[in-house]
Amino acid sequence: MTRRTVFLASGLVLLALVPPIAAALGQPFYVDVFRRIMIFAIAAVSLDLILGYGGMVSFGHAAYLGIGAYAVGIPAYYGLHNGYVQWTIAVLASAAIALVIGAISLRTSGVYFIMITLAFTQMLYYLGVSVEEYGGDDGMRLAARSTFAGLVDLRGGTTFYYVVLVLLVLSLGVGHRLINSRFGMVIRGGRSNEARMRAIGFATFRYKLVAFMIAGAMCGLAGALLVNHTEYVTPEFMHWTRSGDIMFMVILGGMGTLGGPVLGAVVLRLLEDLLLPSWTEHWQAILGPFLVLVVLFAKRGLVGLLPERRDG
């Protein structure tokens, strides 16, 4: 086991200990805080699969967060609370929309790709805003959390916490297998040297498109979790700053690693949700320059501080 793997594993153990520690301290609030963190960690890991490993700078990843959330919220609005159905829709719908967006945007590269992914996400955002039936701008409340008859009851905050943790671990496991598989080598090769990939015989487009779909589907699942967490869904889930936020987590933690996005999600969410707001109302005036500094001087992220070969 490499040092980073040890580090990631101990981090996950710590996350598993959050509910008992919070209970002991009489601060159940932290269960909520860390549940939200882990949901964003799943989203960040999914983005890292295409951004860090695949070199696809998608600035529209929040779209799938929103799609996953509405895929739970809309059935619930019509009285369907079955989580098996809702979450399946969330994953499939996200993959389908990623297929469409990817099929158009992956034909381009560089700046075009960034702008197009951003633009399509904005389109979905405006779609959410303009559909009054589902609350438009204001969004809608989730009448009840997804139900999983005979499996788990998400109404219990701690139970839900562990469900999210299990899904995070599963995402990391799937991600690990993925990036080291033949498929993963193709994705990473495409990031390293696209012309070389094509010259040795890889039609890279289809692999990138499938990776784009997988990342979308995984983030859609995070969206389904997020709506259950907040018990509310609004177009804000798809706001472009949300995409920037997730991207920041990946960079802050260290892209092209699996532990990095998780660490980035923990640090950024704690900064944004707890530390900075408690200090000043205008915390974004601090966060913005901080982001600039991270990009300029700490490109390898927090994980880069741990000396280890760059690997899954």
Binding site: L51, V57, F59, G110, V111, I114, T241, G244, M247, F248, I251, H282, W283, Q284, A285, L287, G288, P289, F290, L291, V292, V294, V295, L296, K299
Partner: peptide, 18 residues
Amino acid sequence: HLDQVLATFGLILFFNEL
């Protein structure tokens, strides 16, 4: 481009808050 996007995203946060 990734660096540029992120750094200028940081500038947006800053200016909006300003």
